[in-house]
Amino acid sequence: MSKGVLVDVTRCIACRSCMVSCKSWNDLPSIPGGFQNNWDAPGKMDANNWTVVNNYMIEDGDDIKWRFVKKQCMHCLEPACESACFTHSFVKTKEGAVIYKPTTLNQDYCVGCRYCMIACPFGVPSFQWDKAFPYVLKCRFCYDRMKEEGLEPACVTSCPTQTLKFGDREELLAEAWDRINKNPNYVKRVYGEKEYGGTSWLYISDVPFDKIGFRTEAYGKPVTERSIPSLTWDVLKWTPAIFFGWGALLTAMRAYTKRRAEVHDESEMYAPVDPKE
């Protein structure tokens, strides 16, 4: 079964245990000055920080809500990074994790072209800009824990408020709608259910998603519910037909016009130029 995590934004208290446990399980270096207690500076994911908790102040008249949102790779059902990679260095495992093979499976095919970073609709993959031979790094859904030891991801284990719940995606989705339907405070939407073809990580919230850093619309239209790989495939699938069709057409045209054309001796027509002083 494909796994997922349900994130209930209403429960997060911003203790950031998930960030710490992510770092320690994945042996990510801590950078002095990286973890600060400064709520005004939103954290960004990068090659050494695979998950961050950001805060959002939502003011509605006198009603002020402060919400904390954990972000990491969404683990798309049909990942854009996987389809964008021309060496297939990303893969969606049957467990649901989207993993980067060079570091997770020790299969070093990555060229470092960074097209995955262009392709990801959530801006997740990060590059080791300071390395001579950089990797593209991101959350791997603790694939090693999941696969080898049957454990939950490190962040889920360390969450003290049950903001994060690990389980089968389909069951979590049902539970998400159950929570939404039982409590009118929730926004009637599960972020990750359909966006870009759906993601393994699902979010529910009591404040509008566009107020807590999720894109719900782009340039006046709702974000697409089609997966990015399916869009590219709509174009790419024509490649063989164009190759052979266009090639055949050109060959025919060349043969047809050649009969009428005069023959030239090309070696008589051109000469090296004499560079003038």
């Binding site: 060496t87 060229v111 950089p134």
Partner: peptide
């Protein structure tokens, strides 16, 4: 521009044919 340039030949052998690249 590519980070892991010694791998530049990999796409010839690892067929990511679903990629535009």
């Amino acid at each position: 521009d590519i980070g892991r340039w010694y791998n530049f030949w990999r796409p010839f052998f690892y067929w990511g044919f679903h990629s535009v690249l």
